[in-house]
Write a protein that binds this DNA or RNA. Sequence first.
DNA 1: TTGTATGCGTTATCAG
DNA 2: CTGATAACGCATACAA
Lengths: 340, 340
Amino acid sequence: MPGQVTLSDVAREAGVSLATASRALNGSANRTVGEELRKRVHVAASRLRYSPDGIAQAMARGRTTTLGLVVHDIADPYFSAVAAGVAAAATAGGLSVTLAVTGDDPRREAEVVHQMERQRARAVVLAGGRSGDPEADEALRAAIASFRGIGGAVAVVGRDGLGVDTVVVPNRDGAADLARALHGRGYRRFAVLAGPEQHAAAAERAAGFTSALDALGATVPAPLVLHSPFTRDGGHEAMSRLLAGEGRDVDLVFAVGDVMAVGALTAAREAGVSVPEDLGLAGFDDIPALRDVTPGLTTVRLPLDQIGAEATRLVLQAGEEPVLAPVASEVVLRESTPGR
Amino acid sequence: MPGQVTLSDVAREAGVSLATASRALNGSANRTVGEELRKRVHVAASRLRYSPDGIAQAMARGRTTTLGLVVHDIADPYFSAVAAGVAAAATAGGLSVTLAVTGDDPRREAEVVHQMERQRARAVVLAGGRSGDPEADEALRAAIASFRGIGGAVAVVGRDGLGVDTVVVPNRDGAADLARALHGRGYRRFAVLAGPEQHAAAAERAAGFTSALDALGATVPAPLVLHSPFTRDGGHEAMSRLLAGEGRDVDLVFAVGDVMAVGALTAAREAGVSVPEDLGLAGFDDIPALRDVTPGLTTVRLPLDQIGAEATRLVLQAGEEPVLAPVASEVVLRESTPGR
DNA sequence: TTGTATGCGTTATCAG
DNA sequence: CTGATAACGCATACAA
């Protein structure tokens, strides 16, 4: 029954002291262990099938090698792409990733951060838009402060005002670029599927889009704005609502996320409205798994995996002052907006 | 500076012994602590902002509350859906999830299992098809055996022969059902994008499809079989190859995974072949994020999140004998196979 | 019901 | 270079 095998067993087997065994297998600071003994210890360890107890190591060292990753929904391709970047960077940095999903409940965020604190995680990466619930937001702040109090590092992606390392997603500028590009293709009467009102990233995208349009002058009427959940179904619902109501004369719909956009696409199809012939459609994120929809979706590309990797890098370097790391976005024009 | 606060501090602050403080805050077996003292301890704990050290607890208790989740690629919607199920069930069961991604390297699987053993994880859920590399497979077996040696539970999904709790995915039967359904719609000349030759789940799907076809009699010629990576690009490549070569008279293409199918769909489009007019197309998995592609993809639905949840449940109950938990699949006919 | 004392498996400190 | 031994923070048998 291996696994019950402790370092003491190895030491005894090798005929050395516990301390020497520890040093031989781990060689931390004073890594000077005689070649002779060193070999004996290693042989003994593998003969006994010794597996170091990470918990005990963490305890003795006073620190873990755990990075906490907090997402709303790991099944959402946005988060899973970011998670992939985090996982890769964490592995490269010798950290293991503890995944925490918060679902829809904004209070869960503070909860899981506290949980990470109890686990004594080295760092936490918070992906996901702001909750909008001020109470939950305050609780999150407190949880973060507490976590930093024990020496934990925190980075967030696409969400500001938390006073920690932040990967800044160009929601506003990206949406503005998109608006100008679409205007350049001749679209004039816009609608925005803006997601939930409190969702910060969604709001920034909607605002960036709208104000860029506004800056283009009087030829462009203010866009219709519809709110709905930031999900596939939310996009479907909002598009249905649009087409059933005052959306008749709209010539382009901007959904603030690709996931919403594909829902909207299906809703349009179900309503007998053809994209792109009758209506242009654009999204945001350029989710890899969605690149094969038809028609190809015009969108704003975000380097999702790089964002995750960058957040991880931030959290590993973790200086005193919070740093803002901007990422670039790029408008990708595809068949869903051929122009008119 | 909270976090440095230890249970001893709380005990002192409350004027009780360490043991009483421990029992008051945790109340496990002998949960009998006087209401008076109990309250005093809690007050002291919150006043001092005490955060229990999970590492120390794990050490003292001799067990952790960690579940390891092993996937090839968390960005793959198949795995992220399963991961969502695992995360939900684990949270419900009071476990935290450590995510490990293995990428393409089959040897990483054994490695991460060993890592989970060092972390003294309570359990490991292994998602993902077999590697095919016999050496890596053997290493994985050994790692699993070792992990079980320390009392760890293991469950795998969609991969057999490991002698552990298994969520059995009906690859063979699901594909056979699909074959019959498609035959029923009039398709006769089939091609199979079968994924990598060594990929077990892919092979089972291909085999189930092919042999069901075979059982249907002489009117159905043996399908063309093409191998390529089990990815979007793999599907794209195989479809391109098919259409450029002997695939001219095929009337239905079965890709053994939805992810491959969407790649194939795009390849067909690029080749000027229209789906479903010129060619029917079917996939497998019914990945949620892909349900909005056009035309809607005929596929075999797998309850991915339930699969993850079930695997987690298995691993938490963990009896002596390995149990096989079957899941149901369902053919979903959509526009990509209208029949002919 | 409460307190005392021990042990969990390692690392690290401090002598030899 | 190597070996005792003291932490690490908590849970728990044992004693009172």
